[in-house]
Amino acid sequence: MKLLGLDVGDARIGVAVAESGRPFAFGRGWIERGDGDPVEAVVELARREGAGLVVVGLPLRTGGEEGEQAAKTRRFAAALEKAGLRVEFVDERFTSRLAGQRLAHLPRKKRREKGRLDEAAAVAILESYLESRG
C-alpha cells in the first residue's frame, strides 16, 4: 500500500510518498495553501498516487501537549477524513530540525526555497511513521 505523508502548515503543505514496509519516503513537493482548496488538492494527489493512508504530522509542544497549531492540523485531517481519506497522526516535534539537517548539503539558494523545508519535513514525518511500524 502507498502512503502519503503531510507536513501541514499555515502557508504550505509539504508532501511525501512511500510504500508500506519500505523504510524510505520520497518528497513530492508542496501544496500552496492559497492556491485553491488544499483538501481537494490532497485528495487528488492521494488518488493519483494510489495512497491508501495519509500520515499527518501532529505539531506537539516540547512537553507533548497540543496547542493551537495541533488543533488546526486536526481540523484539516478531519476534513480529509470527511472527503474519504484514511488518516493517521505521527508526532512531528523534531522533524523540521531533521529536515533542515537533510537539506544542509544543498546550495543556500535551493535550501532556502519556499516549500523545500516543508517537503523535507513531510519525508521525515513519513519515515518516522514507517520506522515506528517496523
Rank of each mutant, 00 (worst) to 15 (best):
M1H: 15
K2G: 05
K2E: 12
L3I: 12
V8L: 05
G9H: 03
G9R: 15
D10T: 12
D10G: 07
R12P: 12
R12Q: 13
R12K: 14
G14D: 09
V15Q: 01
A16I: 01
A18G: 03
S20F: 03
P23M: 02
P23W: 02
A25G: 14
A25Y: 02
F26Q: 07
G27A: 06
R28Y: 01
W30S: 04
W30E: 04
W30T: 00
R33N: 05
R33M: 09
G36Y: 08
G36N: 00
G36E: 11
D37F: 02
P38V: 10
E40N: 14
V42C: 11
V43Q: 08
E44Y: 00
E44R: 14
A46T: 06
A46F: 03
A46H: 11
G50V: 08
V54H: 05
V56I: 02
V56M: 08
V56H: 03
G57A: 14
L58E: 03
P59E: 01
P59D: 04
L60N: 01
L60Y: 08
T62A: 13
G64D: 07
E65Y: 02
E68D: 04
Q69A: 09
A71H: 13
A71K: 09
T73Y: 08
R74E: 07
R75C: 10
F76L: 12
F76N: 06
A77E: 15
A79Q: 15
L80S: 02
L80N: 06
E81T: 13
A83Y: 05
G84M: 12
L85V: 11
V87E: 09
E88N: 11
V90F: 00
D91A: 06
E92W: 00
F94L: 13
T95L: 03
G100M: 04
G100N: 10
Q101A: 14
R102A: 15
L103T: 10
A104W: 14
A104T: 07
H105Q: 10
H105L: 12
H105Y: 15
R108D: 11
R108G: 11
R108L: 13
R108T: 10
K110V: 15
K110R: 14
K110C: 07
K110F: 13
R111T: 12
E113V: 05
E113L: 10
K114P: 03
G115V: 13
L117N: 01
L117M: 11
L117E: 09
D118S: 00
E119L: 05
E119Q: 14
A120G: 00
A120F: 02
A121G: 09
A122C: 05
A122S: 08
A124Q: 09
A124N: 03
I125A: 04
E127Y: 03
S128F: 04
S128M: 01
S128T: 07
Y129F: 10
S132F: 00
R133P: 04
R133C: 04
